[in-house]
Design a protein around this nucleic acid. Structure first.
Lengths: 341, 341
DNA sequence: CTGTTAGCGCCTTCAC
DNA sequence: GTGAAGGCGCTAACAG
């Protein structure tokens, strides 16, 4: 025996309202040519039956779902979370719905596979377009709109909005160098993350450009957490020639660093300058205000959505690549030092 | 003119492999009765064409998608994020895929509507079952498996796993009272959140049970952020009769409170005891270890998935309601005080 | 204004 | 072992 349907379908509604399926469909899609009376009757039945049209069937027929997909590697990274935030806000305004797919903490390899899988699973099927955050896969096999957020710069054959980590790091270094610092410690982030790598590169490039020899001891590898920021700073402080400034690859590391510095009786910025990266909420009130760089992450989400929607609506894109600018936020954790020699 | 199909369908594969659609379907679903040779040929074509079967069509036909939906109000709340984490891990192990729908910061009213909307949009259509985190809506019109995480205790007509906020608060108070504290300040959380309310209720109930009159001045309304924790603590400290202990409704508030206390030259726990709630990562190393209560949030996600999968597979549930236990983690921010009189 | 008809891409009998 | 046909729930023509 066939067990009774669990779903109430458009047919049930049509039946209950004594009209045809297409009439119900018209009501559903707010077509104009339905008699008010019929319209109301159908609406009432829909209410009564608690009917909701099946996304699956709808998308299959009309190739348009009003749903946007978002594929993110890890919601626990602040970066991803902020992108989601921006996307969410924009989506709502634009009248789309959002489906997020997030990998947990998969390995890099397995994530690339799942990323791929999800793009083809969703796009053109349940989703009108997809935004992929920090894609691991080099490319995607979808013929539907896709926008990447912060992909590897060199492997982008789809529209993207990218963070300017390198430029941001440069601006920090320029600032620090301008204040007279020469021994600048660097607390890195997770080496498996592009952003971390690019910030480090910015650090190195600045040094190089300023003709300051690169000292590997001044670079500590962290993982973007406060805790390791603390430990990395301890290592830096234990150096025979202690740095006069520390550039942490993100705010949380910077906060950890400040703790380590304070703990041994030194003061920020009097004794050591500290700069972070990200401009998280806490940054504004740590140690009287942490100098850091804002990269407008949630705006990246917004821009990505805007690009995607244009793509979906077949409108031209001004730029294939949107570079989200970066801004140094000077607060109270840096101080000029007298030149050494 | 009809523009060319963007998707490669099962038909295209069948054609390219010179077999029938049903054969391809068999390969896709790993049916046993396919000649090895045919199987491999089809697989190869699938690879070549980058074919991926349409979720929409598949779900429509087979009423089974292997996708689980998760509806959360706000990913920025630590609670939600941790649930997602637990869900994610479990999902992957169980071979399901996960689709998350998250409201941004909608108002409570509008969220209830969207919540409803999403449940009916997804369930039975694209999703085999749904988990709703801290549902706002009282009930849902779905005939498909649905599990709630931390719903209002009284309005649950579907399976749920609930946090034991009240019990947790009780255990904190028991501990504090046991240490001899009588003037205990409370820093509340967002009054629109059940968890905050229940923790407050636990505070009040404990007081009542211990025959300590409730003093409204000792209760400050915060919003679960470090910043307001800081400000609330300042208010508490400015009281004519300063509390000997502060119970903050979450760890971030507690951390803010410790900052405020330290700032005026007092010490934790020597001068004031502080307890948090949540046991976030930071808690373990703030001020030498924050005493707090762990509620195993990500485990709630895990349990919810397990319940849901049982439901999907038509297996019986041992309990309709799973109460996730709570555990007081005693660290270094509390101290006994001598009885007052 | 409303009903009828024909698929969308896929899976599942049922023949062969 | 494989192909053909029917239908899942819905929308988009086309008739009336």
């Amino acid at each position: 025996m066939k067990r009774p349907k669990l779903t109430v379908t458009i047919q049930d509604v049509a039946h209950a309202a004594s009209v045809s399926v297409s009439t119900v469909s018209r009501v559903l899609n707010d077509k104009d040519d339905v008699a008010l009376e019929t319209y109301e009757k159908v609406q009432r039945v829909i209410e009564d039956l608690g009917y909701a049209s099946s996304l699956a069937a709808r998308s299959m027929r009309s190739r348009k779902t009003n749903v946007i997909g978002l594929v993110v590697p890890d919601l626990e990274q602040a970066f991803c979370l902020n992108v989601v935030k921006g996307v969410n806000q924009t989506i709502e305004q634009l009248g789309y719905d959002l489906l997020v797919y997030s990998g947990g903490n998969s390995t890099k390899r397995s994530w690339a596979a799942r990323e791929h899988r999800y793009v083809s699973l969703l796009n053109g099927s349940i989703t009108d377009g997809i935004i992929v955050v920090t894609p691991t896969a080099e490319t995607f096999s979808t013929h539907y709109p896709l926008v990447a957020v912060d992909p590897h710069l060199d492997s982008t054959d789809f529209p993207a909005v990218i963070a300017t980590n390198h430029v941001g790091a440069l601006s920090v270094m320029e600032y620090l160098l301008g204040l007279g610092h020469r021994r600048i410690g660097f607390i890195g982030g997770r080496p498996d993350l592009q952003s971390a790598l690019r910030r480090l590169q910015g650090y190195k490039d600045s040094l190089c450009q300023a003709n300051i020899p690169f000292d590997p001891n001044l670079v500590q590898v962290g993982d973007f957490t406060r805790e390791t920021g603390y430990r990395c700073a301890q290592n830096l402080l234990a150096l025979p020639a202690r740095p006069t400034a520390i550039f942490a690859a993100n705010d949380r590391s910077a906060i950890g660093a400040i703790e380590a510095i304070t703990e041994i009786g030194l003061k920020v910025p009097e004794d050591i300058s500290v700069v972070g990266f990200d401009n998280i909420e806490e940054a504004s009130f740590v140690n009287g205000g942490l100098t850091t760089v804002d990269q407008f992450i949630s705006d990246m989400g917004r821009v990505a959505v805007e690009m995607l929607v244009k793509l979906i609506q077949n409108q031209p894109l001004e730029n294939q690549l949107f570079r989200m600018p970066t801004k140094l936020i000077v607060r109270n954790t840096c101080r000029a030092v007298a030149p050494e020699n």
